[in-house]
Design a protein around this nucleic acid. Sequence first.
DNA 1: TTCATTTCTTGCCATAGGTCAAGTTGAAGG
DNA 2: CCTTCAACTTGACCTATGGCAAGAAATGAA
Lengths: 193, 193
Amino acid sequence: MQPSVDISFLAQVYNHPLLSRNDIVKLSGIHTREFIKKGTFVLEKGSVPQEYYILESGLLRSFVHDYNGKDITVNFFTEGELIIEVASLFQRIPSSENIEALTNCTVYKVDFEEFQQLFHEMEGFREWGRAWMSKSLFDFKQRSTSMIVDSAKERYEHLMKHRPSVSQKAPLKHIASYLGITDSSLSRIRKAK
Amino acid sequence: MQPSVDISFLAQVYNHPLLSRNDIVKLSGIHTREFIKKGTFVLEKGSVPQEYYILESGLLRSFVHDYNGKDITVNFFTEGELIIEVASLFQRIPSSENIEALTNCTVYKVDFEEFQQLFHEMEGFREWGRAWMSKSLFDFKQRSTSMIVDSAKERYEHLMKHRPSVSQKAPLKHIASYLGITDSSLSRIRKAK
DNA sequence: TTCATTTCTTGCCATAGGTCAAGTTGAAGG
DNA sequence: CCTTCAACTTGACCTATGGCAAGAAATGAA
């Protein structure tokens, strides 16, 4: 049994002035709903992704290993967000990061070729894509600035406030590496509150 | 006297498999060469940019002020790079950062409206744009990971190696804030070598 | 040339956060 | 119910980097 597509959920994700309700319906055609079990890797280092996903429910993270083999969480993916490794998907190069499901998840899968075709066909979709990229770029810029300007405690509080589901569902060690501190330090920060 | 456009320079910048020599010539039509004096702001916090630039020679930086009023360099722009604040240019919202010329510069200016038109007309241009954005996204991701994984000294050495012109032309304090350390610390790091 | 301003260096001490190691607590499988 | 493994906490100590302030060097304007 194939679970069915939830148009109004997709309408929220693909919210853009140049995308009409009709466009969304058309877009929904390239989305298939899937379940992903906790622990599954939706992308492995070294492979070239053939798709991206939209996360309906659950939590994932992307991570890399530094030169000491230490595991560093690069990003979390929360409900309503795109699960995508932009550089490797668009440039067809092997990914340098892994993406792993931290909980059971429900996602919409989008094949790259089908995406690509609609992308060039629909101006609104392109504009949405560019807006999405701008926002991501902005977020990562903010993130590196925050690493400079804010203390570990402030960064933690910011994460708590803006992405509460992360601190609820992710193990402390992943949150710590995402914040750029050790798990001991994060434990102390939490205690201090 | 209007300085003339250097097509082969632009061909390097707009290097992409889907952009032919003819496409580049067409693109060059929306570029005007300009000189910018050291100290000029090409973008001021709070204003909405109407253009982006390509840097032929010179050095610029973008920066913000943190809540203590401390000046933080977010990025440097070196020769051959795009001088652009993506979020505010594409989403037509006031910029949260400033962009300032650290030396006299030669640039190609591109008006947003003219860009926008060609962008939707030429598939190759769109693909180039997306590739450029992917790369930027990748770079910022790397940057935040580097802030976590590498020591101040390693970050400095990386910058030295990959963007030597920055350490040659920018004052120490801007390099320090870009690296996320104080100018005293950077001075000591330099000395230690 | 001189004066003023910025840039850079350096010393002293403070501190956030790291490292390592030893527990606890807790959850999942047999 | 017991065992195991991961998650989390906590303590003792260490280190990279910050804050502050003084001075030296370089740059630029008059």
